[in-house]
Design a protein around this nucleic acid. Structure first.
Length: 450
DNA sequence: TCTGGGGTCCTAGTGCCC
DNA sequence: TCTGGGGCACTAGGACCC
């Protein structure tokens, strides 16, 4: 999907179409999750600190992510992919590999092209959004093709042309080459993919180590035999929070670790898992990050056990100077065991039950009056109907009243505790027929978009 | 400029067992 | 009895991805 979060917001909010939109954390330490193509013109991009984005594009719309909303759209798209093949490997909410041959959806270049074109049309009809398709003989090349296809396109890499195509490209296009490896290679005088090939496999192994060296050399030769894997097992579950202001108080650090341990266990249980290794993560005031872990004798999903382990691990960490991030994770995962179920029956479930509401809210925005009106979130007003929060502060909340298929709407300001105003569910981007389950498109409804 | 959150994989050191 | 080495589990850190 193209600039997924930002595009979804633009489709949902007519007044933002054609405008610079930035989705990400709005706190003092937030970073950009997605910038619309209009915002990218100003140099705004993913992972950039929000403060920097605001300097570059002061007039852009800044919104907090609505993962529930994006997940619903993502499920529609993944459904379309599974219609093509049973072998669908999601990489994230907005990207997936599909093995077209395994599904019989394509057997040669022409049939693949047709399947790709139809998929793009279906995505547009069902979600109202644009997606790009890359077609190639391997995952690495399909990914490169899809990057080239963005936005709103389709690119095929024909067999036999791979080496010539990727040779002149930067090493950074290869999977596994990030800033650190990129720098490492650059210092060795290697800038392009073909320079990796020229350097030779032995040199790559010498520079980067065995696994990385062999892997990268193969990728540079356009050799990638990784198969599309539909079901990947989860290996770890973790939660972490970055605090707006560094925490110095040791008691408060301990309290936050306990809360994170509880949240982590709720995730774990939600996935029907338990785990043996408890990991504590601490990022200090100077951004140095350290982890401490402890492996138990058997897997657990007991909040008290995870809390105690996390507290023990915290004892070995010096937090003077302050911490900016804390995290708790569990790895060495297993399915529930009988012992767990018997040993830990009622008590803890009640204990955790009380906090379920808090967890649900954490997904979509806190309950506290001011923060309840998170920028970009949907609301309904008894008199003015459906809208979204454009901003809030100083006891006021500003709402723009519009829906995905309306004209750009009017803005009105209310008191944050106005009883006529309530949080609302996002509206579907494409109108559905009455009684339909929600996936059937209204023919031609995407033409509502300007 | 000042760096999120949730993951995966790899490497290297250490200790233990055979 | 001492030494060496392979294999494995555990721990910590780093890089990378979206």
């Amino acid at each position: 999907m193209d600039a997924f979060f930002a595009s979804a917001e633009q489709a949902s909010k007519p007044s933002l179409r054609g405008k610079a939109v930035v989705v990400g954390g709005l706190g003092p330490r937030g970073v950009v999750a997605t910038a619309s193509y209009e915002a990218r013109v100003f140099g705004v991009h993913s992972a950039m600190p929000m403060a920097q984005a605001r300097r570059l594009a002061p007039n852009a719309a800044y919104l907090v992510p609505r993962f529930g909303f994006y997940r619903a759209i993502s499920e529609q798209v993944m459904g379309l992919l599974r219609d093509l093949s049973p072998l669908v490997e999601p990489l994230s909410l907005d990207e997936a590999f599909v093995d077209l041959e395994a599904g019989g959806a394509a057997w040669d270049e022409e049939s693949a092209r047709l399947a790709g074109a139809k998929l793009r049309a279906d995505i547009r009809a069902v979600t109202g959004l644009t997606g790009s398709v890359g077609l190639a003989a391997s995952k690495m090349l399909a990914k490169i093709a899809s990057e080239q296809a963005k936005p709103d396109g389709l690119v095929v890499i024909e067999p036999g042309t791979e080496r010539a195509l990727i040779g002149p490209m930067s090493v950074r296009i290869l999977p596994g080459v990030g800033p650190a490896t990129g720098d490492h290679l650059r210092r060795a005088g290697i800038h392009t993919v073909e320079e990796i090939v020229e350097a030779g496999e032995d040199e790559l192994v010498r520079l980067l180590g065995k696994a990385h060296g062999h892997g990268l050399y193969a990728m540079a030769m356009a050799y990638d035999e990784r198969s599309v894997v539909a079901e990947r097992e989860t290996k770890s579950v973790s939660v972490e929070d970055t605090y707006d202001v560094d925490i110095h108080d040791r008691m408060r650090v301990g309290f936050e670790v306990q809360r994170l341990a509880d949240r982590c266990v709720r995730r774990l249980r939600g996935a029907g898992l338990s785990g043996r290794t408890i990991v504590l993560k601490v990022r200090r005031y100077d951004f140095s990050t350290l982890t401490r872990s402890e492996t138990l004798r058997g897997p657990t999903d007991d909040p008290a056990v995870v809390r105690e382990a996390a507290a023990r691990l915290l004892e070995s960490v010096d937090t003077t100077g302050g911490v900016r991030l804390l995290g708790v994770g569990v790895s060495g995962l297993a399915d529930y065991t009988q012992e767990d179920l018997f040993a830990q029956a009622a008590g803890e479930r009640v204990e955790l039950g009380e906090e379920v509401a808090e967890e649900a809210v954490a997904e979509e925005g806190p309950v506290v009056a001011e923060r309840r009106w998170a920028s970009g979130h949907d609301v309904r007003h008894a008199e003015f109907g459906h809208g979204w929060v454009q901003g809030s502060g100083l006891g006021r909340v500003t709402v723009r009243f519009e829906t995905p298929d309306s004209e750009p709407g009017r803005v009105r300001t209310f008191s944050v505790d106005d009883p006529a105003l309530a949080v609302a569910e996002p509206l579907p981007l494409v109108r559905v027929e009455c009684g339909a389950a929600g996936l059937r498109p209204d023919p031609g409804s995407h033409s509502h978009r300007p």
